[in-house]
């Protein structure tokens, strides 16, 4: 249905979809791993400076 140059059109759309999907999956996987690490740290009782109330200000 795309005429004589179907290969080029499909290749262009293919590579576009591939790169966008890889980018998307990479961002999602990265987000999961960050959330997991954050949960681990919080489970160990580590608090951020803004969450801690009594800790002195360190520059």
């Amino acid at each position: 249905m795309f005429g004589t140059h179907a290969g080029f059109i499909l290749a262009a759309y293919g590579i576009a979809i591939l790169v966008v999907v890889v980018l998307f999956v990479w961002i999602v996987v990265d987000g999961r791993s960050q959330r997991r690490q954050l949960a681990e740290l919080e489970a160990r009782g580590v608090r951020r400076r803004s969450a801690a109330t009594s800790e002195g200000d360190r520059a």
Partner: peptide, 12 residues
């Protein structure tokens, strides 16, 4: 989140 984790690791 990555920066928060970094900051928390440093505090730890």
């Amino acid at each position: 989140l990555r920066r928060r984790i970094r900051a928390m690791r440093m505090i730890e």
